[in-house]
Design a protein around this nucleic acid. Structure first.
Length: 434
RNA sequence: GGAGAGGUGGCUGAGUGGUCGAAAGCGGCUUCCUGCUAAGAAGUUGUACGGUCAAAAGCUGUACCGAGAGUUCGAAUCUCUCCCUCUCCGCCA
C-alpha cells in the first residue's frame, strides 16, 4: 500500500505514475475521502478531549453537587454526539482503507511505458536454442514416457491437476532439492512454512482484498491455501521491528502453490504449464531501502543461475508499467525456451516491491542510530517454478530416440541416472543413499 | 474433543476504577569514569494518526495493555461475547 501522506501531498505525481499502469486507477476519490476522514476525526477528537476534561475535574477535585450534575449532563450530550459520529468515522476509515489497499504500487521510473505485454522489453538472452527436428511437446513426451498422467489427475481432482509418475515424480523432487541447495549455498536461509495461511497474510503481501476470487479458501477455518511461498515467507516478520544488523535477510522456500486460475479459462489447457497446484522454489529478501535495487538485480541473477546450471536457453525481460503485478515497483520475468511451442514462456518473476508490502504487513526495522522504525523493502522471485522447469527440460533435452537427457547437475540427485526412458520408467533404481 | 491458565511496551514481567503510556529488569541511545577490553555511574528511551510549521525539530490533541460490546463522570483494572496462546487429559502422523 502507498503512503497516504505522499498521495495527499503529491496527488498529481501519484496519479501520473498510476496512469502508466493503464488500469484505470484514480486517487481522486481516495483523496476526497481522506479529507473527510480527517475532518470527522478532528470533530471526534474534540468531543473526546472535552469528555476527558470533565473526568479530570472529578478526579482532582472539589466540585459541588450541582456542578457534578451539570457535568454529567454535558457528558451525556457529548456521548450522544459521539454515538452519532463514530459510525460515520468508522465507515469513512473503512472506505479509505479499502481504496488505499486497492491502489497498486507506483511503477519505477526506470521501467518502460506500455499497456500490455507487447511493450515488455527483452534485456538479455542466454543459451543456444537447440536444433531439434520436429520437437515434441512435453505433454506428448510425458505421455509416451509414462511420467505425466493428466487423465488421472482429473479423476482425482479436476482439470488442471496432474499426477507425476516414476521419473516425473523423481525429477520434480530432484529439481526442488537442487534449487534449494544452490540458493542455500548463496546464503538464502531455507524455510518450510505453513501451506495454509490466515487472511492477514494474504492482505500483507497484496493478494487481498483486490483478488478475492483467485485463491482457494478453507471457509470453515478461514484459511487460504498459499498461491506462492511469497505469502507465508514475506509475512514471517509481519508486525515486527527488526534490528538493522539483522538485514538483509535472504530466504528460500519450497512450497506447493494453489491458484484457481480464474480468468485463465481456455489458456494453456494442454500440458503441465498452468496447473491449479504446482511446485515452486521462491526467493524472498528483506533489505534496507537503499539497497533494494541492487538486491533486485542480484536476486534475478540467482534465479538465472538455476537456468544456466540446467543449460536451458532463456531470456530476461523487463515488464512495462502496464503489465506488472499489483504490488511490484519493478519486475523482471525470466522466460525459458519451449521448442515445440517455438517460443519463450515465463518461468520466473522477480520483483522489487519497495516498501509497498512492508507498509501493509507492518514490516519495519530500527536504524542502527536508534531513530524511528522504518519500513523494510521486500523482494521476491521464483527460483524457479518447478513444473515448468521439468516441462522445459523435457522439451529442450529430448533425444531422437524418444528419451530425455537429464541435465548434468541433476544426475547426482537421481542416483546417477542420465536419461528418462520409457522402459526405465517402471523400474527406476533407488537413489544412491550415501 | 474435555478441563484449566493466560494474552500488558523492542524483550521479560508488575499492575490498587482516577496520581497509568503504564513499576522493575533487560536491551537501545547519550554522557562520565578506569591504560584498552570487561565491569561501573548518571541520564534518556513506546507506537500510530491528526493539528501547528515551508520543512525538520519542538509543541500540542486523540487513540492504543488480544478484538469487539457494556457498566461508569472516568476502565489495562469490573461484566459479556469472540479470537488466540499455553498446560493437563483424550485422539492421532
Amino acid at each position: 500500500m502507498l503512503d497516504i501522506k505522499i498521495i495527499r501531498d503529491n496527488q498529481d505525481e501519484v496519479q501520473a505514475a498510476l496512469d502508466r499502469r493503464h488500469g484505470g486507477y484514480s486517487v481522486s476519490e481516495l483523496v476526497a475521502i481522506d479529507k473527510q476522514v480527517r475532518e470527522t476525526q478532528g470533530e471526534w477528537e474534540n468531543l473526546r478531549r472535552r469528555s476527558n476534561e470533565i473526568s479530570e475535574q472529578f478526579k482532582t477535585g472539589k466540585v459541588s453537587a450541582e456542578e457534578k450534575e451539570a457535568l454529567k449532563a454535558e457528558t451525556k450530550e457529548l456521548k450522544s454526539k459521539l454515538v452519532d459520529i463514530e459510525p460515520q468515522l468508522k465507515e469513512l476509515e473503512a472506505k479509505r482503507d479499502l481504496l488505499l489497499q486497492s491502489i497498486p504500487n507506483l511503477p519505477d521510473k526506470s521501467i518502460p511505458d506500455g499497456a500490455d505485454e507487447n511493450a515488455n522489453v527483452v534485456v538479455k538472452s542466454w543459451g543456444e536454442i537447440p536444433d531439434i527436428k520436429e520437437p515434441k511437446h512435453h505433454y506428448e513426451l510425458g505421455d509416451e514416457l509414462g511420467i505425466l498422467d493428466f487423465e488421472r489427475g482429473v479423476k482425482l481432482a479436476e482439470s488442471r491437476f496432474t499426477v507425476l509418475m516414476d521419473m516425473g515424480a523423481k525429477m520434480e523432487r530432484a529439481l526442488m532439492n537442487f534449487m534449494l541447495d544452490l540458493h542455500g549455498a548463496k546464503g538464502y536461509r531455507e524455510v518450510f512454512p505453513p501451506i495454509l495461511v490466515n487472511r492477514d497474510c494474504m492482505v500483507g503481501t497484496g493478494q487481498l482484498p483486490k483478488f478475492e476470487g483467485d485463491f482457494y479458501k478453507v471457509e470453515e477455518d478461514n484459511l487460504y491455501l498459499v498461491p506462492t511461498a511469497e505469502v507465508p515467507v514475506t509475512n514471517l516478520y509481519r508486525d515486527e521491528i527488526l534490528d538493522e544488523e539483522q538485514l538483509p535477510i535472504h530466504h528460500c522456500a519450497y512450497t506447493p502453490n494453489f491458484r484457481r486460475e480464474a480468468g485463465a479459462a481456455g489458456k494453456d489447457t494442454r500440458g503441465y504449464i498452468r496447473m491449479h497446484q504446482f511446485n515452486k522454489v521462491e526467493l524472498v529478501k528483506f533489505v534496507e531501502p537503499d539497497t533494494s535495487n541492487d538486491e533486485h538485480e542480484k536476486m534475478t541473477r540467482d534465479a538465472e543461475a538455476i537456468l544456466e546450471a540446467l543449460e536451458l536457453p532463456y531470456r530476461r525481460i523487463v515488464l512495462c508499467a502496464g503489465d506488472m503485478g499489483f504490488s511490484a515497483r519493478k519486475c523482471y520475468d525470466l522466460e525459458v525456451w519451449f521448442p515445440a511451442q517455438g517460443r519463450y514462456r515465463e518461468i520466473s518473476s522477480c520483483s522489487n516491491f519497495g516498501d509497498f508490502q512492508a507498509r501493509r504487513a507492518n514490516l519495519r526495522y530500527r536504524p542502527a542510530d536508534g531513530g524511528k522504525p522504518r519500513f523494510i523493502h521486500t523482494l521476491n522471485g521464483s527460483g524457479l517454478a518447478i513444473g515448468r522447469t521439468l516441462a522445459a527440460i523435457m522439451e529442450n533435452c529430448q533425444q531422437a530416440d524418444g528419451s530425455v537427457k537429464i541435465p548434468q547437475v541433476l544426475v547426482p540427485y537421481l542416483g546417477g541416472q542420465t536419461h528418462i526412458r520409457k522402459a526405465e520408467a517402471t523400474k527406476t533404481p533407488a537413489a544412491k543413499l550415501v
